[in-house]
Structures are given as structure tokens and as C-alpha cells.
Design a protein around this nucleic acid. Structure first.
Lengths: 156, 156
DNA sequence: ACATAAAACTTTAAGCTTGAAATATCCTAC
DNA sequence: GTAGGATATTTCAAGCTTAAAGTTTTATGT
């Protein structure tokens, strides 16, 4: 995976493989750049940012399992990231609704402020990193990826 | 990141953000599926597969630093993965050329056979997972991502 | 030749990630 | 009401990942 300089051999079925390799390399390249900037500028990480972004759009809070589904990561993973965010005072757990198995997770006031700042920078970075993609290509690409996603969700 | 159901607010600069979110979700979805199948069918992992794929196309071997650059991961990371592959007998280190700092890493005979088998399945999976993307879209998408990459490489 | 820098690699600490097992709570059917 | 199963979450072991510091070897300047 993540093939680079050398060409992928041609032949039937190789087109999709080539597409996948390019897709993966593009997202890894951007992801690496974002991770580095989040670390340098805000001393945080991509997973923390992801969790905070999810919570930012759900002021009333989210269940751990909702976070896990939404972010496409495992349950245990979310537990660890939220633990760290809680210990940093950016996120709070509230175990107070009817179901005592669940805990409602939400951003603290500090977490909300912190995320707003980081998100603004983040959006600027994306604009910069994807700046060379024309508006038209951006739309078309988005459309293709969206339809890929719908197709995917129709699986199994 | 990895936003889902909820819409990203519209406005200037939001198009690129939306594109990035879709790109990331698509690659994470596919990656998760591949990881799961590699584990289930061949009891291996994506990073191991990546390293073996790189070595497969370089029968004469690669330096650790070449692997690191090629796969877009850190040096120390490659060390660990190669260590495990060596202990499994799939990869060999040869410290025998002029420069005694370097070690040439290559697939063993067993590693080569093993990779060939896995790679065939892998290509089939990609064909299946991206099957709904039309040939035409696949080409166009690949082209866009390639030009993104060239632009990127022209940075800094 | 010798000091110093550069390069290739490994080690380390901290954090991320998964899948599976363990806990705790809730629900359902008797 | 209670046994059995389902659900929500955490814990755990193993592996992946990075950045930074450390080791060994090679290259460079004088």
C-alpha cells in the first residue's frame, strides 16, 4: 500500500488499486502535516481534535458509543482519549441520566473555547493544504467520495 | 475531523474542509476493512503488508531510511515492524555493503511467497470495495489526487 | 590526522489503536 | 421477581506511531 515513485503494473483491476494507493497517500500526507501542526502550535493530537470536534457539534453531549461510531474507532480507544481530555479539563463525563451504564460526554467551557481556537487554525490549514485543488475539482471529488460512501453503506 | 451525518456549515473555505473530511472518511473506512480482512484471513497487519509490498518491488533490498521515506512513516516505526517481520522469518537484514551504518532489508523466500498470496487477495478486495466506482470516475479521481500530490511536493 | 558535523539506524517514552475479555446495568420472558 | 440475554462501557495485551535522544559509522574541513 502507499506505493510511490514506482508505477503500479497495468492490467485489469489495477485501476482501482491505483486509485486506492493515491487516496491513501493523499490522506496520509495531509494527516501527517495536520498532526505536526497540531502538536507544534497547540500541543495536542489529531485524535483529541477529532473527539473535540464531534463534541463541539453536540453541546448536549454524546454517549461513548456514539463517539465511537461517529469517529469510526473502537470503544476502548475512545475511553482512553476521553480519559486524557478529562484529565486536562477539556471534557467532562456526566453519569446522571436514567441509564447508569452510560455517561454523557461533553466539552467543558474551557474545552469549547480551546476547540474554537484550534478549529479556526485547522480550517485555515486545510484551505492552505488543499488550496491548489480548484473549486470545481473540490466539488466533483467531494461528490464522488460521497457517492462512494453511500454505496458503501449499502453493503452487507 | 471525520465528520459524518451532520452537515458541515457552508461558507467560503468550507468546500476544501468538506473535501478533506470526505477523503479522510473514505480512506479510514477502506483501511478498517482491509485491516480486518488481513487479520482474519492471513493473521497479519496493514503496516506489515505495507513493508512487504515495498520490499516486493525491490528484490535487491532497501535501506531502512528508504523504507521510511517510501511509506511516509518515521524511522523508529520501521525498525519495529521490520524487527517483527524478521522474527517471523519473512524479512532479512544484510549488513554487508561498504557502509556499516546501513542494513539492506529484503524479503526472504518465504516472505516473497507469503506476500504474493496476500497481495492477490488484497487486489481482489480493493476491486470489490471500490467496485462501485466507475472506471471513468476512478481514472478522473486518480488524476486529481496525482496532481494534488505533485502540487504538494512543490511546497516548501 | 583530528575534531566536528552529518548520516543511518535504534532506543525510549508517551500516546493511539484494535479485538477480546471483564463489569456493570438494563430489559424481557417467564 | 428472577434468570438469561442484551447493551454500554472499561480493561487488557499486543502492536503501531511519533518525536526526541542516543549510538555507531562515515564524511568534511583544516
Amino acid at each position: 500500500m502507499v506505493a510511490g515513485p514506482l508505477p503500479v503494473p497495468s492490467g485489469p483491476g489495477k485501476d482501482r488499486l491505483r486509485l486506492w494507493i493515491r487516496l491513501l497517500r493523499a490522506s496520509r500526507t495531509i494527516e501527517a502535516e495536520l498532526r505536526e501542526r497540531l502538536k507544534k502550535e497547540f500541543d495536542t493530537t489529531l485524535p483529541r481534535f477529532d473527539v473535540m470536534a464531534a463534541l463541539y457539534r453536540a453541546p448536549e453531549g454524546m454517549l461513548m458509543s456514539d463517539l465511537s461510531r461517529f469517529l469510526l474507532v473502537s470503544n476502548g480507544n475512545v475511553t482512553g482519549i476521553v480519559d486524557r481530555l478529562v484529565s486536562e479539563g477539556l471534557v467532562a463525563r456526566a453519569r446522571r441520566n436514567g441509564d447508569r451504564r452510560t455517561s454523557m460526554v461533553r466539552l467543558t467551557e474551557e474545552g469549547t473555547k480551546s476547540f474554537a481556537t484550534i478549529a479556526a487554525a485547522h480550517e485555515g490549514w486545510i484551505g492552505e493544504l488543499l488550496g491548489k485543488v480548484s473549486e470545481e475539482d473540490a466539488h466533483r471529488l467531494t461528490g464522488m467520495l460521497t457517492s462512494f460512501r453511500s454505496n458503501w453503506e449499502g453493503r452487507e
